[in-house]
Nucleic acid binder design. Structure first.
Lengths: 203, 203
DNA sequence: GTCTATAAATGGATAGAC
DNA sequence: GTCTATCCATTTATAGAC
């Protein structure tokens, strides 16, 4: 196993992981073919196995990267003092995460997880905890009147994340106009379809 | 082929299709196992092939059913005279479709399609046309001031459908409280996170 | 580390008896 | 129409030469 032989191996693993994430994004994990990943990484199928243990490891590494990105979003949002500002910042950061060329394939992989293996189930469990923490943030925001109080925080959290999670299916980060779409998505989460000119949530 | 032998065969196909839709919902089409479908339908794997041509036919039939349901939603929404009312009615109907015990597995199947085969690509094409028609409805609603005009109708359409499409991943129609979740989802699409008490779109 | 060749396993689909 | 047994294509993963 070449993980420790000087740093080159790490980059090889990295490039294979990037190729895998793109393949997973395009076809879905189950329909993805390890041979396609190898070709995309400029390797034969068997050479690929010198850098990676197998398909499942690529899934696991990809999911970990997605979850680490979400961790960072939450960490930054926790720094906000006002509950409404924390909610708004989290939404902005997760939208950014979901529409960033480098991070989208990993987050999309996480979104598509259904619990078909232990790896997937443990990723789902971590996702569930994000939902709960976001719900707590929303509850605090509700208590100061920053967001609507006519539904439970958990339902609100799932609806918000649902809107954001759906972005990966149609947003193409390399196309022009992504910044506009990001801003639109944030405003949609905050105010929906209805006529604008309503004040955004604040502390 | 037993399709015409008296009506029984049709019901056999139907029960296999229902079992398949549930299996597709739980594991995703690619990870779904035809053997599981057979067992769930109370058949051996080979008996199943007396009622169905193969896995792909189950995909095709499932996608057609989902698309037919969406067709009905649009047909009903087109009957509304006022643009804002048409938008609102479409949202209500699609949310209902997405959270109905009998229809959710089929709609979820459609949502998960990535274009990995001709069947999937043609379903995606039909979905794309729904997006466009909804965008046209939204454009009319914008022109009478019923919905926000600070983003393009197509982006707005995709954000709306995205929010609704994401419901399938966590709403369980047989659990109590689904009616409340439906109402919440509609209100969220209309007004987002922001504080409520804003008039809903009309005329 | 890379390759060709091949093993091993999975899973969709079929044969043919009852 | 249903079953057991089997086929066979596909695909993950490994062996072993260079």
């Amino acid at each position: 196993m070449p993980e420790t032989t000087g740093g080159r191996a790490v980059n090889d693993l990295e490039s294979v992981l990037l190729a895998a994430a793109d393949e997973f994004l395009e076809r879905g994990y189950d329909a993805a073919r390890i041979g396609h990943v190898a070709t995309a990484a400029g390797l034969s199928k068997s050479s690929l196995y010198h850098h990676v243990e197998g398909k499942e490891q690529l899934l696991q590494l990809g999911l970990e990267r997605a979850l680490a990105g979400l961790d960072e979003c939450f960490a930054a949002a926790r720094d906000e003092a006002e509950p409404g500002a924390a909610v708004r910042r989290l939404i902005e950061l997760v939208v950014e995460d979901m529409t960033d060329r480098a991070r989208l394939p990993f987050v999309a992989l996480l979104i598509g997880v259904r619990g078909n293996s232990d790896i997937e189930r443990s990723a789902l469990e971590r996702r569930r905890r994000f939902d709960l923490e976001f719900a707590q943030m929303l509850e605090r925001a509700q208590s100061v009147g920053a967001v609507r109080s006519d539904m439970t925080p958990l339902v609100l959290a799932r609806l918000c994340f649902g809107t954001i999670n759906a972005l990966h299916a149609w947003v193409r980060p390399d196309r022009h106009g992504v910044d506009q779409i990001r801003a639109d998505a944030v405003r949609f989460v905050l105010a929906g379809l209805g006529h604008d000119s309503r004040p955004e949530p604040t502390g």
